[in-house]
């Protein structure tokens, strides 16, 4: 299928436990993402979100299964898949420019210093850090550090961005600004993005698709929720959208109750055909992930999950 840019096919992660037993964090996990799609994963701690991201990044290997990116099974890390780390992970002995230039010179090893510097500078300007190039990470605020992390990830012009709760350590105001910028940059550059978050509003604002995972161990991907909000959504009037609260309530209901009980209540859950939830469609539609159709909304229709 042409729109399966990234396809996670039946991966599992098991750790050897005490007395020969094995702990299965998750198994038989299938999910796919189209090119240019922004996907968020929501689930409680311990459901293996970070492990999935690390496997996508190539930092970790699945115990079973495979990940296919752009038609090729991945083995190890790649410069096509940039990671924005939760703890920003800047090298503290390098300046802002040095950190970005390190990534640039890792990708284009034959470039001379001036070219590397100029390229790094464009991405520092892009995230709005012009003037702070020669500061060290210790002189920056948390938000600025994360901007450097974003500039570093973007500077290698990756095919996809992997973000592990990139804004969770920031204050609400900075988080909002950075969400705007990440959204703008991803739309402008057509990035495929995979992001872990605990923040339901963040997921609603940023994502095209939201993956809901049940509690671990033995976590499964329960639902794929399609975001009914238009692509050119704005932060200020997001909550006025007629489907906003239906979407939000659906996700929160899942996190509060269904993430615990999902496995017991849905014994016939098929991990290969995870139900796609389209909020606001007359009669809750549960379609298999194979037949994808975008739901369009019209103002004035009855908001809410009509289930």
């Amino acid at each position: 299928m042409s729109d399966k840019f990234i396809s996670i096919e039946g991966i599992a992660k098991r750790y050897p436990g005490a007395a020969g037993a094995t702990t299965t964090v998750f198994e038989n996990l299938w999910l796919s993402m189209a090119r240019g799609e922004f996907c968020c994963v929501i689930g409680h701690s311990g459901c293996g979100k970070t492990t999935v991201l690390n496997i996508l990044a190539g930092l970790d290997a699945p115990t079973e299964g495979a990940v296919i990116v752009d038609g090729q099974a991945i083995s190890g890390t790649s410069l096509d898949r940039a990671v924005i780390f939760q703890s920003h992970a800047l090298l503290p002995w390098r300046t802002v420019l040095g950190n970005v230039a390190y990534a640039v010179s890792s990708k284009w090893r034959s470039w001379d210093r001036a070219k590397v510097k100029a390229h790094a500078q464009t991405f520092i300007d892009l995230v709005g850090l012009t003037g702070s190039e020669h500061k060290r990470p210790s002189e920056l605020s948390g938000g600025m550090k994360q901007r450097v992390g974003i500039a570093r990830a973007l500077s290698i012009t990756p095919k996809m961005m992997l973000m592990d709760e990139p804004f969770s350590a920031l204050d609400a105001l900075t988080r909002g600004t950075l969400q705007d910028e990440v959204r703008r940059i991803c739309l402008e550059t057509g990035q495929t993005a995979f992001m872990i978050t605990h923040d339901v509003d963040e997921a609603i604002y940023l994502a095209d698709k939201i993956f809901l995972m049940t509690n671990g161990p033995g976590a499964v991907l329960a639902e794929v929720v399609e975001n009914p909000l238009p692509r050119d959504r704005g932060r200020t009037d997001l909550h006025r959208h007629p489907l906003y609260y239906a979407l939000r309530n659906h996700i929160i209901d899942f996190l509060v109750t269904r993430s615990k009980t999902f496995a017991a209540e849905t014994p016939d859950h098929d991990p290969r055909n995870v139900p796609v939830v389209r909020i606001g469609k007359p009669g809750l539609s549960i379609a298999s992930s194979g037949e994808e159709q975008r739901q369009t909304w019209t103002p004035g229709t009855n908001p809410g999950l009509t289930a």
Partner: peptide, 23 residues
């Protein structure tokens, strides 16, 4: 996390030793 940065940037072992581990 610093090692992981070098790994995601596909930095080779020798370069990683001098640019990440040594500093």
């Amino acid at each position: 996390e610093w090692i992981n940065v070098a790994r995601t940037l596909e930095v080779g072992t020798i370069r990683r030793a001098f640019t990440v581990i040594l500093p």
